[in-house]
C-alpha cells in the first residue's frame, strides 16, 4: 500500500494542471456564500445569520475538497477504451488500487483551498462553529466515511459503463441530485419539506452535509451518534453496491479494442 500511495502522489504531481482546474471548479460554495451573506445582511434568513452562512459554505468547501471524487469518469473511460484490461491482469482489486491513487491525491487537492477556507472560517464564522468535543472527535471519522460513500457511489456509477456505452450521461443526473440533496447548493433545512425528507433518506446528505453539520450545528450526543451510525450504514451499502456492480460488470466486460 505505501508504494501505491507513493505512485499516486507521483501521478498527482504529474497531472498538476488538471488538479488546478479541478480545484477551481469546486468553488461553487463561494458563489453561494456571496449570495446568501448578502441576503442575510439585513437580518436572519430563516434561522441562518450571515455568519452562519459563512461558516456553512466554507465548511462545505472544505468537505467537498477533501471528499470529492472523479472515479466515475476514470472507470467509465477505462472500460470504454478497453484499458481496464490492464487492471484486470493485476492481483489487486481495482477498487483498492484506484482508491489508493485517490487518497494520495487528497493532500495535493486540498493544499491551497483548505488552509484558506479554514483561516476564513475561524476568523469570520467562528461563532457558528461547534465546540462540542464529541462532535469534533467525530469529525475525522465522518470525513473518512463521506469520502468512502462518495468514492463507492461514483465507483458504482462508473461500473455502469460495463452495461451501457455512454454511462457518463448519467453523471449529469448524479450531479443534479448531488447539488440539490447533499447540501452543496443550499443547507438542507432550507429545502422544501418533501425534498428535505428525500435528502435525509438519500446517500447524498451523507456524502457532504453530515461532516458540515457536525462542524456547524448544535446537536445532542444521541443525535450525533445516530447520524454517524446512519453514515456508517450508507458506507457499507454503497461499498456493497460498488463491489456488486463491479462483479456483475466484469462478467459482461468486452475488453474492447485490439
Amino acid at each position: 500500500m505505501p508504494t501505491l500511495l507513493r505512485i499516486g502522489v507521483s501521478e498527482t504531481v504529474a497531472y498538476r494542471g488538471e488538479f488546478l482546474i479541478w480545484m477551481l471548479t469546486t468553488t461553487m460554495p463561494l458563489v453561494m456564500l456571496g449570495l446568501f451573506t448578502s441576503v442575510a445582511k439585513t437580518g436572519n434568513f430563516k434561522e441562518y445569520s450571515s455568519a452562519d452562512f459563512v461558516a456553512y459554505y466554507l465548511a462545505i468547501l472544505i468537505v467537498r475538497n477533501l471528499t470529492g471524487s472523479w472515479v466515475a469518469w476514470q472507470i467509465s473511460e477505462e472500460i470504454r477504451m478497453g484499458t481496464m484490461s490492464m487492471r484486470l491482469l493485476r492481483p489487486i482489486h481495482p477498487f483498492t488500487a484506484i482508491a489508493a491513487g485517490h487518497v494520495a491525491a487528497i493532500p495535493f487537492r486540498a493544499v491551497i483551498s483548505v488552509p484558506v477556507a479554514v483561516i476564513l472560517l475561524v476568523t469570520s464564522g467562528a461563532q457558528s462553529l461547534t465546540t462540542d468535543p464529541l462532535q469534533l472527535a467525530l469529525l475525522l471519522p465522518s470525513l473518512a466515511l463521506s469520502w468512502l460513500i462518495t468514492f463507492a457511489f461514483l465507483f458504482a456509477l462508473g461500473c455502469l459503463a460495463f452495461f451501457v456505452t455512454k454511462a457518463m450521461a448519467l453523471m449529469n443526473l448524479y450531479f443534479l441530485l448531488f447539488s440539490l440533496l447533499s447540501g452543496y447548493l443550499l443547507p438542507i433545512p432550507l429545502l422544501p419539506h418533501w425534498l428535505r425528507v428525500v435528502s435525509e433518506y438519500s446517500p447524498f446528505r451523507f456524502m457532504l452535509s453530515v461532516p458540515v453539520e457536525l462542524m456547524t450545528k448544535a446537536m445532542s450526543t444521541t443525535e450525533a451518534l445516530v447520524l454517524m451510525a446512519a453514515q456508517a450504514g450508507w458506507a457499507v451499502a454503497t461499498l456493497g453496491l460498488a463491489l456488486g456492480l463491479w462483479r456483475a460488470g466484469v462478467k459482461k466486460f468486452e475488453a474492447v479494442g485490439n
Binding site: 505512485i7 504529474a14 497531472y15 484499458t83 484490461s85 490492464m86
Partner: peptide
C-alpha cells in the same frame, strides 16, 4: 495497449 503509467 500499454500497462505503463503514461506520465511517469
Amino acid at each position: 495497449k500499454s500497462q505503463l503509467i503514461w506520465d511517469l
